[in-house]
């Protein structure tokens, strides 16, 4: 199998009414990668995904899945992809088990094997107890898990998750993170779009940011986070402060009399900051990042591009 899971070149999509959703994007995702495709609403993430899975016809450009061009070898490409879409797209009146078994049938998998696999994935995703429940009776989180089981039943090499944890409570979200991470560890290539940037930061090794139909960043998560030159922290102090202390090199705001917000550049260490606190007799009881690092960078990048 080729080392490149997905190769996109100069992909363009213009919808009727001359709406340019994609203005020529290039992407290369390595086999086994855990890839975050991020961008604001309407940036072109779902259009890109829908072209890959052939739900949207592209205007121009090429898409290859493990070397299979979707123009010439669409069915070979389809077999290798599993999709968990943003919106629920199963028949709500059908039973959980039937939905997964039918999907396997659409990939040409005999019923006996389809049933075995449906059982395996429904058990792994904690849905086996609900196998005879009609899909409409599932909670939002369970519906998302059902779509993951359905996407896995033909055992694809590339799993695309389009906002899989949207509207899901934290417990189920964490269970899903663990499950998806394990899939990646087992060798599956994963593409994730999400609005929870903490999720992308924790799970993904590579990142691309798409905005207004163009890729504006495409690098490893490590490099991307390294590019952050400043970080804002929140400090909770023990005794109320009357006056804002003056700390050289640090941009400081007082949120209330026991909370400080300080922006720290990479040039200055936290040690120096703490020594300043000590000098000023300020006792710190806790500290935390103001926002997730990725969120901070994402906002800066998207806002910078928009200002240009």
């Amino acid at each position: 199998m080729p080392e490149t899971a997905l190769e996109i070149k100069n992909l363009k999509k213009t919808y009727p009414g001359n709406v340019e959703a994609l203005k020529g994007i290039d992407l290369e995702i390595k086999k086994g990668d855990f890839f975050a495709l991020l961008g604001p609403n309407g940036a072109g993430k779902t259009t890109t995904i829908n072209i890959i899975i052939s739900l949207v016809n592209k205007t121009s450009g090429t898409v290859k899945v493990f070397g299979h061009d979707i123009d010439t070898h669409l069915n070979e490409a389809k077999r290798l992809i599993g999709i968990v879409p943003q919106e629920f797209n199963f028949s709500i009146f059908e039973k959980v088990f039937d939905i997964v078994v039918q999907q396997a049938g659409y990939y040409g998998i005999p019923k006996k094997i389809a049933k075995e696999r449906a059982e395996k994935y429904l058990k792994q995703l904690g849905l086996w107890e609900k196998k005879n429940t009609s899909a409409q009776r599932l909670s939002g989180g369970l519906k998302r898990r059902l779509m993951i089981a359905r996407a896995l039943v033909h055992e694809p090499q590339l799993l695309i998750l389009d906002e899989p944890t949207a509207g899901v409570d934290i417990e189920i979200r964490r269970h899903m993170w663990k499950f998806i991470s394990d899939l990646n560890t087992q060798g599956r290539t994963i593409i994730l779009t999400t609005h929870y940037l903490e999720e992308a930061e924790n799970l993904c090794r590579s990142i691309a940011i798409i905005d207004k139909g163009r890729i504006i960043e495409n690098t490893s998560m490590k490099n991307f986070l390294r590019s952050m030159d400043k970080e804002a922290f929140i400090f909770d102090v023990k005794e109320p402060i009357k006056q804002i202390p003056k700390l050289e090199h640090y941009d400081l705001k007082m949120l209330d009399e026991t909370t400080l917000e300080i922006e720290i550049s990479k040039k200055h260490s936290l040690n120096t900051l703490f020594s300043h606190f000590q000098k000023n007799n300020i006792e710190i009881v806790s500290m935390r990042r103001k926002t997730a690092r990725l969120e901070e960078l994402f906002m800066r990048l998207v806002n910078n591009k928009n200002e240009r």
Partner: peptide, 11 residues
């Protein structure tokens, strides 16, 4: 219901 997508994404 968009469940037709189950078929359209399959081979």
């Amino acid at each position: 219901q968009k469940s037709i997508e189950e078929l359209l994404v399959s081979p």
